[in-house]
Amino acid sequence: MATETTAEGCEACPAHHAGNLIKLGVNMSNWDYVVALAGNPNTGKSTVFNALTGLRQHTGNWPGKTVVRAEGGFSFGGGRYKLVDLPGTYSLLSTSLDEEVARDFILFGQPDVTVIVVDATRLERNLNLVLQVLEIRDRAVVCLNLMDEAKRHGLQIDDRRLARDLGVPVVPAAARQGEGIPLLIETLAQVATGQVVCKPHRLKNETPAMRKAIDRLVAKIESVYPDLPNIRWVALRLLEGDKRIIEAVRTGELGDLSRGTPGDPGTLSEVTR
């Protein structure tokens, strides 16, 4: 099955995960790329979503506003992008209801690009989620939102430095004023089409015991599913006893993630471009 897999081909091809997305309730018939929108609660994620899609989803200034997944779309440079707004979460590791929705989509939905909206005034706290997402997904763009507020609070953020440290593009924005949105669209399109290649940051400061445990489990998973894109993260979740991941391992659903090459009858549906 690996015969048709090229360096880029698999991840970039819109059809490779269509089956999984349809399972997650995403209608894919008119879209070329899927973009997931993740972020902490109250970072203006819904505002970014509205700015990107032109929709008027209600936004509110209290944490946990988006409680369901909203969807919209836009076209850019000939590509049609489907945007999925995930519930705002602080983390993907605490297994509460909203986190599961976000986590399932990022892992099993395999979006072409994951945009992580972060609050520039609370960068450190927000990076928690960014680093977790980068453990799962390679193709990501960080949208450094609320730059206007950061400025008002006397904060200066070196977005280039941040991009270099994180290994993914960082776009400063003030979504309420519409600033930075065109650049965000352009950047995420470049990542989606593979013009920009990400080298995401991976965790460096594990304790020796953790590293030993992770390495041992990673070796085991690798021997069973050599093509799995996010082995390390799966190992982390298994070590924490995450029931959804255990279930996915048990049923073999996890294996599907590594097998989703074009031509696989299991995942290629009648989706055509």
Partner: peptide, 22 residues
């Protein structure tokens, strides 16, 4: 330990990127 690891990285990254003007 995992959360500590993540936050250690996060604060390193944030420290390098953020500076206060006043």
């Amino acid at each position: 330990s995992l959360m500590e690891t993540i936050y250690t990285d996060a604060s390193q990254v944030a420290d390098r990127a953020v500076s206060r003007t006043d």
